Amino acid sequence: MSGDVWVVVPAAGRGVRFGGDIPKQYLQAAGRPLIEHALRALLAHPRVRGAVVALAPDDARWPGWKMLMDKPVLRCVGGDQRADSVLAALGALPASAGDDTLVLVHDAARPNVHAQDLDALIAAADASGQGALLAAPVRDTLKRADAHGAVAATQPRQGLWRALTPQAARRGLLTRALREARDAGVQVTDEAMALERLGLHPRLVEGREDNLKVTTPADLAVVEFLLQQRTPGASA
């Protein structure tokens, strides 16, 4: 299956875990805010038609982009939870994006997504009617802690994956999945979880380990290094 692809970026969060006064999507790395790196990487893909960014209602830091990479960037007001923002952005897609339009949902603070991963994700989503997501197999030994912070057990890692973004699904299907989760009072932490509630099995697409989400100051330092390797002189 082919056709246009739209990007949805939920960016209404405050970045509480990171700390500081600046929402983490606006932190600078290699000369640009994280959200700009993410948008440029996504919009550079030839199948992507444009993006919708869900913002906090009082967001004064949004640069006001209407175009990036010669493609439209739309905005809408997001919600308190990720799923609320994604639903708002799905509703803000243009009328030309029908229920069968493939939508990629991507974290605003995950700036180092690569074109090869987007190619693989879109191909998998085209081939599957149940959605797809970038993910990475768990390679470390996993420990379960007890209430005192000691090891309670070692968990088998076979078959376990870390969910990354983008996550992909058809607009109509994802809208239905998120609405049904909301109406059931279930707080889904990613789009795949909402699809799973419908009995679907989104396709796991192995992505690069350096597709990092900035959550801590240490993450920001690593991401800045990675971005500088991709675009030498970007911080000048």
Rank of each mutant, 00 (worst) to 15 (best):
Thr101Lys: 08
Leu93Lys: 12
Ala11Asn: 08
Ala123Met: 07
Val52Ile: 14
Ala109Asp: 15
Ala218Asn: 12
Leu87Thr: 01
Leu204Val: 08
Asp190Val: 00
Leu133Met: 15
Pro63Asp: 01
Gln187His: 13
Leu102Pro: 05
Val214Lys: 09
Ala54His: 07
Pro10Tyr: 05
Ala38Leu: 03
Glu196Gly: 03
Pro202Ser: 11
Val214Ser: 08
Gly149Gln: 11
Val7Ser: 07
Lys143Val: 08
Arg14Asn: 05
Ile35Met: 14
Thr189Arg: 15
Gly3Lys: 10
Leu178Asp: 01
Ala11Phe: 02
Gly3Met: 10
Asp119His: 13
Arg170His: 01
Val7Met: 08
His37Tyr: 05
Ala145Pro: 03
Gly233Ser: 10
Gly31Cys: 06
Val223Glu: 02
Thr231Gly: 00
Arg203Ala: 01
Arg17Glu: 10
Arg17His: 14
Ala218Gly: 12
Thr175Cys: 12
Ala41Met: 04
Gln116Leu: 11
Leu68Trp: 03
Gln81Ser: 05
Lys71Gln: 02
Ala29Leu: 05
Val73Phe: 05
Ala184Phe: 00
Val103Cys: 05
Arg203Pro: 00
Val73Gly: 11
Leu68Ile: 14
Leu90Arg: 06
Gln155Ile: 15
Trp161Lys: 05
Val73Thr: 11
Gln116Trp: 00
Pro166Ile: 04
Val52Met: 13
Ala30Cys: 15
Thr216Ser: 15
Ala95His: 09
Gly20Leu: 05
Pro23Ser: 07
Asp99Arg: 12
Lys213Ser: 15
Val188Tyr: 00
Gly129Ile: 12
Ala218Cys: 03
Ala135Leu: 04
Leu55Ser: 09
Gln81Thr: 03
Gln167Ser: 15
His37Leu: 06
Ala153Val: 03
Met67Ala: 07
Ala181Arg: 13
Arg110Pro: 00
Val103Lys: 06
Ala177Val: 00
Thr154Ser: 07
Ala234Lys: 09
Val105Ser: 15
Asp84Met: 06
Val222Gln: 14
Gly98Thr: 14
Ala163Asn: 09
Gly15Thr: 03
His106Thr: 13
Asp70Tyr: 13
Ala169Val: 00
Pro166Glu: 02
Pro10Ile: 01
Leu93Val: 13
Asp219Thr: 10
Ala109Thr: 08
Trp65Cys: 09
Ala51Leu: 09
Ala54Phe: 02
Ala12Asn: 04
Arg179Thr: 02
Val52Glu: 14
